[in-house]
Design a protein around this nucleic acid. Sequence first.
DNA 1: CTTGAACCTATAGTCGCTATAGCAATTACA
DNA 2: TGTAATTGCTATAGCGACTATAGGTTCAAG
Lengths: 139, 139
Amino acid sequence: MDFSIGDLSRRTGVKVPTIRYYEKEGLIEEPIRTEGNQRRYTERDLERLTFIRHGRDLGLPMPAIRELLDLSAHPDAPCADADRIASEQLQNIRMRIVQLQSLEAELTRITQSCTGTHAIADCNVLKAFGDHGLCKGEH
Amino acid sequence: MDFSIGDLSRRTGVKVPTIRYYEKEGLIEEPIRTEGNQRRYTERDLERLTFIRHGRDLGLPMPAIRELLDLSAHPDAPCADADRIASEQLQNIRMRIVQLQSLEAELTRITQSCTGTHAIADCNVLKAFGDHGLCKGEH
DNA sequence: CTTGAACCTATAGTCGCTATAGCAATTACA
DNA sequence: TGTAATTGCTATAGCGACTATAGGTTCAAG
């Protein structure tokens, strides 16, 4: 029915001390405790923590995750707020996708021109990172 | 001919304290000093720091950058290792793109079904990341 | 009922920076 | 050449997001 912090950790891939840290930070609810003061979690907690884990893996900043959690936590709230949050986050996500795609293109180009048989001296991987021309003109 | 830490900072986009931090960590060489004990850098230092900067921008983890710097210090070694590092990174990025797109789809759905006047019925934000199948199989 | 694994709190440490304080060197301009 | 403003120096502290450790308690399998 419910499960321990160790079970939750195994099922989400989030380490035990990190789960306790998230609780302290208010990212997840304080769960019920056993007689002996140990935490016991539900499927709801599992879902929430899985979301946090995946969001972090994807490189979402912590505040974005907080907002998205808030959004999903109030499905009956007036829609205007939720809509604004969703829209803002949507913009972030799309920007992130575009960035990652340009990076993907760059790395693809680099690895394709590298057969693995020549010497480092002529390696495009290293040259690519040294070349300002490949920047998006930010500096 | 040579230039100050501030110049180096401006030309690479790496902040001054970060440059000193990299030096302490052995990521860049200790440069020569003026009579008055100020650091003076060369084009070689600029190149190396630019490389580090771009690697970080591309989301490479610090150990990967160290590895690449080591590789480039041995220009006669085969290129395969550098290629491997880039390929690993590429896989990672492709996975991230797929997952972000699933969240994008969900957020789009939310904002579209929302006119601002009613409540959000079935919010699937949490479920957007619910699919463990897309993970690297680590958990 | 025992014993070992898993849990508890509290605190300190890690990484990759970033900020601050207090002082010295350099540079620009009058 | 004098003198401010700017930039540099070291050392130390702080931050975010964890991660590890110590010292003790509870749980559950045999």
